[in-house]
Amino acid sequence: MKDIVALVTGGSRGVGRGIALALLSEGATVHVTGRTLNEADERRPGSLAGLQREAANLPGRLFIHRCDHGKDADTERVADEIRAGNRLDILVNNAWPGYENMEENGEFTWPRAFWEQPVWRWDAMIGTAVRAAFMMSRAVAPMMVSARRGLIVNISFWAAQAYNSNAIYGIAKAAADKMATDFAYDLRSHNVAAVALYPGLVRTEAVLANAEYFDMSNSESPQFIGHVIAGLWRDPVLMSKSGRVLVAAELAREYGIADVDGYRPVPLTLADFKQG
């Protein structure tokens, strides 16, 4: 991946951070956006500066961009900086403010019925996350079209297909899937692929902090899905997968990719998710 340039949105922590580290470990040049420059800026763990320190000894090159994707001007500024390099091979749309403030005034409001949901949650998941994926894709797609190669990955989840305690969450993930499908249609004649990609249970900072509430036996490291994205990029029949919803663990089996600890996560199906 030493000649590959990637952009990962929302990489201060969690899945985005893991994807960036995985691509860097494979030698790619990786641009990462995030709102949190230093951990002192927020009460949650994870920051762009921390990612920089963690990536210092990896073979790839890291470029960080402080960016609030709730502001189109910030998204456009980062796109301009990427365009200045005249190259982008992979875009991973991961920015996701939807899990913030799940508890309000001592009450866990996430599973409320849709008519009881706070409007800010719609603004975060739809107005910021879904819009940011569209706006960044719109900004960088011309580079991929011109080069006649590229891959856009929307990080999504099973909530797009099955109820997962929160209607707005399901709507946002369904939008991510549909966006990838329609992007793929527009991009196919230009040899650029677009997919929606589902992780399993990922050992993010937030999940590890609440590990007693999860069955971690089939969990994935944050880096796992990043190595799968690298495998997808190298797939000689990538275009045959364009427009599809893909499961990271299933692709990993196809490509012979194990997690960083050697474990090979079992792919979940829609039936498994409904049972969960």
Rank of each mutant, 00 (worst) to 15 (best):
E104S: 12
G276E: 13
R83H: 04
A194K: 08
L151D: 03
G11W: 00
L197D: 03
L238H: 08
N191C: 09
Q161E: 11
A249V: 06
F114V: 15
S219M: 09
G256A: 10
E212N: 10
L201Y: 09
L51C: 13
R61G: 04
M135V: 14
D3Y: 07
L232W: 03
D72W: 03
M143L: 15
M239I: 14
W110Q: 07
K2E: 14
R43M: 11
K173E: 06
T33P: 00
N166I: 06
T204H: 02
I225C: 14
V207W: 08
V202C: 09
P267I: 04
V247I: 14
A175R: 00
T36S: 15
A209H: 11
M144Q: 06
R77W: 02
I126Y: 01
R44N: 08
A252S: 14
L151G: 05
L238G: 08
K2V: 13
I64C: 15
S189T: 12
N164R: 08
L197H: 09
E26L: 15
S165P: 04
H190V: 00
D272S: 13
E39G: 14
A139K: 01
E54S: 13
A180G: 05
N94R: 09
G243K: 07
Y185V: 13
A249G: 10
G16T: 10
Y99T: 08
W120D: 15
C67R: 09
S242F: 04
N154S: 12
V119I: 13
R66A: 11
G226D: 05
